[in-house]
Design a protein around this nucleic acid. Structure first.
Lengths: 347, 347
DNA sequence: GTGAAAGCGCTAACAA
DNA sequence: TTGTTAGCGCTTTCAC
């Protein structure tokens, strides 16, 4: 029933169909070139032999592996950060529809006290022509990857804006964090909140600054004061818990709502509310960012990045990049969506 | 500084080192065959040309891609199920150390109302010789994959026991769920609990039955009754919440602790406690399964699967499987570890 | 210990 | 429209 013997080759199909190997190749790659009856005959042979082109041979000949490389950053446990994983799923799906597969690699173990090599893992894959292009996702830290890859003439698309480089020459796709936080803040304002606090990250992160800007500009637009309504802390639950407590205590008239730079910080805020017997939504509203599983199961209102959409755009940019006729690299900015749950709705 | 031109080939290195191409190949694959000085000369040339063997050519010639295929199952949102993602990270890392990369693929979109093809995606990769082997992770559903892959003589290692097939001929690695739940139950017993309830899945899942067995045998071993202390529901937060409420109400003397088949169900139980003003740990203890990020940030005691270890074993089995001398396929059962947090410890 | 020849399976270029 | 030729870069024989 099945085939224990080696897979059929192009030559097998050609022999079976009574045509040359090249004709079979054309039947697969340029079916228009064949006369309908020849095509049908070849397709029959392909089907009956269960033929699939050998990837290695095709890869060697065409210099295209149909593989997209993506470096997996170490999983962050004890946080609610799940964006990377959701993105991997989305990318695999989007790639499949474009005829690509995703090759995952890691930067390698980083020795104690050493900085990780920003290009670790990329170089080998590049020189060995194992992948056609990269998706670079960890530009968040200040993207030394994009510079290095550009120097090496490696095709790549970034998931993340080229913050530090206005005239970057690579395509990118990003999510408009400021717009997401703005939507969150407007949502809270619409519910009557006026003292809306920002629970954000320490300075130095462009993403963090961007998200904060969404809060700040919305407050200003509504003529609301931001004084004493802001904290900048590391991205941990404990830091969020403490910062929320401090904000609630410090102001003469404490915040009635928190907008957070991450679900992790938002969970910290929820812990503080619970410890004080305050009900999320009813007493104090909390909104997070990322729509992690944590937010979903805790009923935390959160800003959801459209990662599926982002992946589709990334793959589209990639195909443009790899197309024979080079195109101007594009940038795509997507709007996130607010997922409203009980942590922000008065019951 | 960098190389805008095509990567160096073996021939380039040979010319530079003043040897034949074959000698360069030997320098890489069988260094022992060369005289030390020749070897050194070749290695110099390799370094100065920044040479890395072309994967496609090597793959074509050796029939080995050094790629491990793994099918990504659709992400489960609104649950705390994060095992698959943690496993992917672990597998990428373990593969790297063995000189392999991980190729991700998806089963393809499933049409409305149709069952997904259990072998979707596998076949093409197999026939096109794109991957050397598979890691099959979704055996949980009753593994039609393993049967199909065996028929096709595809090398694979399963993450999950061959439940339905005592004399399965493929290697596998699994985590002893019963032992994990037993540890959780013992933990609760050690804290003085006697009415320990099992919040489990509906029948039909071997994994679910296995985990339940860990609870049941521990209760029996301690001479504790299990009557009225058990629920079998779908794996959702809402189901867990309702089941926990029912269990608390139904018994004359309700359970003082819940052991759950998943973090998702455990979160449901926590919701019920919160709604009744009960404090987890102090009033009623709750233990989950999977050590998801949700458990970590909510302070939920949970059974953690040793996925890093599992990945290392999987890759080891894979290498055995792909080695020239075939070995008896092995099975490895790993013990999980209980991560104790505040949801089970009296304050 | 080193080199020469052959060929893995495919497709780009050209010839018929 | 179809067939022929050549070669992608590498490794596996087998001579030297």
């Amino acid at each position: 029933m099945e085939n224990p013997r080696p897979p059929a080759t192009l030559a097998d199909v050609a022999e079976r169909a009574g045509v040359s190997r090249q004709t079979v190749s054309n039947a697969i790659n340029n079916p228009d070139l064949l006369r309908p009856d020849t095509l049908a005959r070849v397709q029959d042979a392909i089907e009956s032999l269960d033929y699939t082109p050998n990837q290695a041979a095709r890869h060697l000949r065409t210099r295209s592996s149909h593989l997209i490389g993506m470096r997996l950053t170490p999983a962050q446990e004890y946080t609610a950060n799940t964006t990377m994983d959701r993105f991997v799923h989305a990318l695999v799906e989007a790639s499949r529809e474009a005829g690509y597969h995703v090759l995952l690699f890691s930067g390698g173990r980083v020795a104690e006290g050493e900085l990780p090599d920003p290009l670790g893992g990329y170089d080998d894959l590049l020189r060995s022509t194992a992948v056609d292009a990269f998706v670079v996702t960890d530009t968040y830290l200040g993207n030394p990857q994009t510079v290095g890859l550009t120097l090496r003439r490696a095709p790549f698309v970034a998931f993340g804006r080229p913050w530090d480089d206005a005239n970057a020459q690579h395509p990118w796709v990003d999510v408009d964090g400021a717009a997401g936080v703005q939507a969150a803040t407007e949502h809270l304002r619409g519910l009557g909140h006026e003292r809306i606090a920002w629970l954000g990250w320490e300075p130095g992160s462009r993403i963090g600054e961007d998200r904060r800007a969404g809060w700040h500009r919305t407050m200003v637009a509504h003529g609301l004061s931001t004084t004493g309504l802001e904290a900048a802390v590391p991205d941990t639950v404990a830091a969020g818990r403490e910062a929320a407590a401090t904000l609630l205590d410090a102001s003469d008239c404490g915040p009635t709502a928190f907008v957070c730079a991450s679900d992790t910080l938002a969970v910290g805020a929820l812990h503080t509310l619970a410890a004080r017997g305050l009900t999320p939504g009813d007493d104090v509203a909390v909104v997070g960012f990322d729509d992690s599983q944590v937010a979903q199961v805790m009923g935390l209102t959160s800003v959801r990045q459209p990662l599926e959409e982002a992946a589709v755009h990334l793959v589209a940019e990639l195909r443009l990049l790899l197309a024979p006729v080079p195109t101007e690299p594009g940038g795509v900015l997507l709007a996130p969506r607010l997922e409203v749950r009980t942590s922000s709705t008065r019951g």
